Amino acid sequence: MATLELINLHCHRQQDVVGYDEARLTANGVARTYVIDKGGDKSLRGWNVEFTGSTTVVLDEMNGNNNTRLGSAPIHETGNPKTVDFKTTGAWYTLTFKVT
């Protein structure tokens, strides 16, 4: 069994043209939403997810009941990078994490 420790979410370029993004990060079925704007960081310290084999982290940008999928990334027990980028034509986020 491994533990995914989510560390930080950084917004390089937000999806919404006006206002803030409502970035919903889902890890192992648990979702949390963060209000963030361009250049912003959200500390995710304390959010740890236990998993076996692999799990998937998903980032959506919420607009009321509509969401835009910014990307998903498989996370494995071994051999992971320390960051993953979620990029679309309108948005760019970097998630920093570690697996122990």
Results as ranks from 00 to 15, higher is better:
residue 1 M to I: 15
residue 1 M to V: 15
residue 3 T to P: 10
residue 4 L to A: 11
residue 5 E to W: 14
residue 8 N to W: 01
residue 10 H to M: 00
residue 15 Q to G: 04
residue 17 V to Q: 10
residue 19 G to A: 06
residue 19 G to F: 04
residue 20 Y to F: 06
residue 23 A to W: 07
residue 24 R to A: 10
residue 25 L to I: 09
residue 25 L to K: 13
residue 26 T to C: 06
residue 26 T to R: 09
residue 27 A to F: 05
residue 29 G to A: 09
residue 29 G to C: 02
residue 30 V to N: 15
residue 30 V to A: 03
residue 34 Y to L: 12
residue 35 V to L: 15
residue 37 D to N: 09
residue 38 K to C: 10
residue 39 G to C: 05
residue 44 L to R: 06
residue 45 R to A: 15
residue 47 W to T: 07
residue 51 F to E: 02
residue 51 F to G: 01
residue 51 F to N: 03
residue 53 G to K: 04
residue 53 G to I: 01
residue 55 T to D: 01
residue 55 T to N: 06
residue 60 D to R: 06
residue 60 D to N: 15
residue 62 M to G: 07
residue 62 M to F: 02
residue 62 M to C: 07
residue 67 N to M: 12
residue 67 N to Q: 12
residue 69 R to L: 12
residue 69 R to F: 10
residue 71 G to T: 07
residue 71 G to Q: 03
residue 75 I to D: 04
residue 77 E to Y: 07
residue 78 T to Y: 10
residue 84 V to L: 02
residue 84 V to S: 05
residue 86 F to D: 07
residue 86 F to L: 04
residue 87 K to S: 12
residue 89 T to P: 08
residue 93 Y to T: 04
residue 93 Y to A: 08
residue 94 T to S: 11
residue 95 L to Y: 06
residue 96 T to Y: 07
residue 98 K to R: 14
